[in-house]
């Protein structure tokens, strides 16, 4: 499998804090790629560098052979990168369906004047987006609540809605920042299945995650960071048995993953 996203020697500092110090990684297409590491490892900074929320101080970033450095977040979406946020950022005042509809922003093909006086092309697009939006809500198990306000959802449902909204952009590479945080075990099981479904649909999935159980069950490849630096990478089983990784996690959270 060829690499869809490649990072070379990425660096990012915030004042004196070196959040990411020369990270290189290569994410193969059609895989589930997990980035793990203890708190403060620089995982979220890494995610923000890949998505364009931050620009790197140094290093190269290639997506399908194209240079990403300098491209703002909204332009990367057009190339096929989508993401969710560690701290959920929904449009809380809007309905679930409207949240997902906003995700189709880059896909509307309507002559400009039809936004003022709707014509046939407008209504075709309108219908198509709503059908697709409902299908995405179905995918994350929220179709019954389509017309409710997003802010009224339970925490786990909000996470799933954010996933549906990002999927509306039609990503080739989908990055999820701690998607299992705050989910109960049933919800984690559902999420796990959905991640596998995304891979089936040909989406390359990147998961930044604390939940080792999920990572070990679903990831094809695991990349371990610690204090902004590369620690180890490999298949889940290799990572599980690596002494450096176990030490970084001080046995705490990680043995939980080993037991199950």
């Amino acid at each position: 499998m060829s690499a869809l996203l490649e990072a070379k020697e990425l660096r990012k500092s915030f004042g004196g804090v070196k959040a990411v110090q020369g990270i290189s990684l290569s994410i193969p297409e059609h895989s589930i790629y997990a980035v793990i590491g203890p708190n403060g490892a620089g995982k979220s900074t890494m995610m923000n560098l890949l998505s364009g929320t931050y620009q790197p101080d140094a290093g190269e970033l290639l997506f399908a052979g194209r240079q990403l450095a300098g491209l703002p977040a909204h332009q990367r979406v057009r190339l096929g990168l989508a993401r969710t946020f560690q701290k959920i950022r929904l449009f809380k005042q809007l309905s679930l369906l409207d949240n997902v509809l906003a995700g189709f922003h880059i896909h509307h093909k309507v002559p400009a004047w039809q936004y003022l006086i709707p014509g046939a092309a407008f209504w075709r697009d309108w219908t198509h987006c709503r059908e697709q939006g409902m299908a995405l809500l179905e995918f994350v198990g929220l179709a019954d609540l389509a017309m409710q306000r997003a802010g009224s959802l339970a925490y786990g449902q909000q996470r799933m809605l954010e996933i549906a909204r990002a999927m509306a952009t039609g990503p080739r590479l989908f990055m999820l920042d701690e998607p299992a945080a705050g989910l109960n075990s049933v919800e984690v099981g559902f999420l796990l299945q959905r991640l596998k479904d995304m891979r089936e649909r040909g989406i390359t999935v990147v998961v930044v995650e604390h939940n080792m159980d999920l990572v070990m069950k679903v990831a094809d490849h695991v990349f371990v960071m610690d204090r902004g630096e590369y620690l180890f990478e490999g298949a889940p089983r290799e990572v599980q048995n690596n002494p450096k990784v176990i030490e970084a996690y001080l046995g705490g959270e990680f043995t939980g993953g080993l037991d199950s």
Partner: peptide, 25 residues
């Protein structure tokens, strides 16, 4: 009511989120 309205409301609600959907704020 059009997708432009959806985009404007997305900016109103959360501009960073909107950017993650491809919106040039």
């Amino acid at each position: 009511r059009s997708p432009i309205g959806e985009t404007l409301r997305a900016i109103r609600e959360d501009e960073i989120s909107a950017a993650s959907l491809g919106v040039n704020g």
